[in-house]
Design a binder for these strands. Structure first.
Lengths: 107, 107
DNA sequence: TCAAAAACTTACTTCAGAGTAAGTACCCTA
DNA sequence: TAGGGTACTTACTCTGAAGTAAGTTTTTGA
């Protein structure tokens, strides 16, 4: 059974999703982790040269709180922390693809 | 043929789409126009009580510039202006649906 | 002649998200 | 005992999107 949407409630639902994607750097991070990739903090830093440490952490923490990213800490010296997508996070891929396809279709 | 995406270029592509959706009121407006609906400025005002005239115009103008909304002026007094989605704008519906479905799937 | 209706404009203020730059904790090794 | 590597924190400033509130244009009808 499909939900009944009003313009307001549908807009609200999509807005919740956009909030998850909306940080300045979340999409780049996301696309670096798609396909089951696992990356250290420092690897993401190198992969996204323009990002600052503050921003990288901030975005990762929000993505973790939103349930699309997982954080794994290894208690070593120097420390090691790995980031990967949750299953749910991975499933964003086809949805974002739909947006890309739409954009390509501009008449 | 499918494009070759790097993390950066794919993120960039999606970002372009998000910019089209990202204004504070664009999604609500969009969902009020989906399905071929045609609305006057004043009808949108009434349908979205919290919006101000300034914001409504601003968002509509941006959506027009982005090519998802069409503006039709009737030279009457008092004036009449109608807004509707372009074909391309209509096609956003399934893509946004994919996002809604994804959101419902949260484990 | 003056109000009324619709669709805007304009000037000003507010605030959250982003950037800058520096500092912290931990332990190992030379 | 000093420096190096990794993963963060913190304090501050800056900017642009959004909100507020009032004004503008046009012609018709009382």
């Amino acid at each position: 059974m499909t939900k009944k949407w009003t313009p307001a409630s549908a807009a609200d639902g999509v807005e919740q999703v956009l909030k998850i994607l909306e940080g300045k750097w979340k999409l780049v991070i996301l696309f670096h982790l798609f396909g089951g990739q696992v990356k250290r903090f420092s690897e993401l830093e190198k992969a996204i040269p323009a990002i600052t440490q503050k921003m990288l952490i901030q975005q990762l923490r929000q993505m973790e709180a939103d349930g699309i990213v997982t954080r794994t800490i290894y208690h070593q010296v120097p420390p090691k922390v790995e980031y990967r997508l949750t299953d749910w996070g991975q499933e964003l891929c086809p949805a974002l693809d739909a947006l890309l396809k739409w954009a390509e279709n501009k008449q």
